[in-house]
């Protein structure tokens, strides 16, 4: 847990977040997101206000050597969420629920994730919209959403925006929001107080994390420009199956781990494909991490706490 700073900056500061297994544990008190400390610590029991979790990249149906049993690692992640002393208000899933957009894969994800008994707010990954008519994701999770599945909601004074940057991608490009969604983002934020904390979540990172591997969103600049006037903006992504963070002005970006398999660090392998680690090491790369940062001071610290080891 970090020391808190007094003063106006505190209201802007997303100070600390904690990874619960493969989920990120957040709490927001009085409109200000801050940490609960490590899951299982006494601090978590004292949490008040809004708490939510992020899980990502479950890849139901993946059966290759990097993790032949993605169902069991998702079950473990959900199992850990269930034992948290402070029950989160809801979860967000930042996409790649399935590996090949098959009905059975969506069913498996639903069955396992629903065991957490939490509301889940989804956004699709590119693996979730590859059935021939791109119907399955929208049928299950698209109710009340716009376009390819984007939407927003408010919880405890925080404004959440679930974005889709995996649809209608162009050759040679990266993730893309598209003109229609960009206009919607502007409309959705119009008239909101700059002091309202904003949490944006989407599958592919919204910043140019590693364009050589397509890890970025080519038209995110306009969206981020719209978000600039807000004092606290947190952007939560998945897709790259590892923790990465960046702070830019009042905007903090971070990517979550996968519950299925790790991917290599940018440029450290010939391709971003699934990374095989020794079996006894798998849970150490899908494991718990806590991330702490003080946005006001532009400093951040990442503390990985593996599920195992």
């Amino acid at each position: 847990m970090t020391d808190h700073e007094d003063g106006p900056s505190r209201r802007k500061v997303l100070e600390c977040m904690t990874w619960a297994g493969t989920g990120v544990l957040w709490t927001i008190t009085g409109g200000v997101p801050h940490s609960l400390g490590l899951v299982g610590e006494a601090a978590a029991q004292e949490a008040k206000g809004l708490t939510f979790l992020q899980i990502s990249d479950s890849h139901m149906g993946f059966d290759k050597p990097a993790n032949p049993n993605v169902k069991s690692t998702l079950e473990e992640a959900i199992g850990r969420i269930k034992t948290m002393p402070a029950k989160p208000s809801f979860m967000i899933h930042t996409g790649d629920i399935t590996h090949l957009s098959k009905v059975s894969e969506f069913d498996d994800a639903e069955k396992i994730i629903s065991d957490a008994r939490l509301d889940v707010h989804y956004v699709p990954g590119e693996h979730d919209i590859i059935d021939p008519e791109n119907k399955l994701y929208k049928e299950r999770y698209g109710r009340g959403t716009k376009g390819d599945g984007w939407y927003s909601f408010d919880a405890n004074g925080v404004h959440f925006m679930g974005l889709v940057n995996v649809a209608n991608l162009k050759g040679g490009g990266m993730g893309s929001l598209g003109a229609e969604q960009l206009s919607w983002i502007e409309d959705d934020l119009k008239g909101r107080s700059a002091s309202q904390p904003i949490v944006v979540f989407a599958h592919i990172p919204l910043w140019a994390l590693y364009p050589q591997w397509g890890w970025g969103t080519e038209d995110s600049e306009r969206a981020l420009g719209t978000l600039k006037r807000f004092g606290s903006v947190t952007v939560l992504n998945g897709h790259i199956h590892q923790v990465m963070q960046k702070v830019e002005g009042n905007v903090t970006f971070h990517t979550a781990r996968s519950t299925a398999f790790p991917q290599p660090a940018p440029g450290s392998a010939p391709s971003p494909g699934p990374m095989k680690v020794p079996d006894d090491k798998l849970r150490t790369v899908l494991g718990t991490a806590s991330v702490t940062f003080k946005q006001g001071e532009q400093r951040l610290a990442i503390i990985d706490t593996p599920l195992q080891g």
Partner: peptide, 10 residues
């Protein structure tokens, strides 16, 4: 042509 899932592949 390109990969619709990983469009940096052309």
């Amino acid at each position: 042509y390109f990969c619709a899932l990983h469009p940096h592949m052309t």
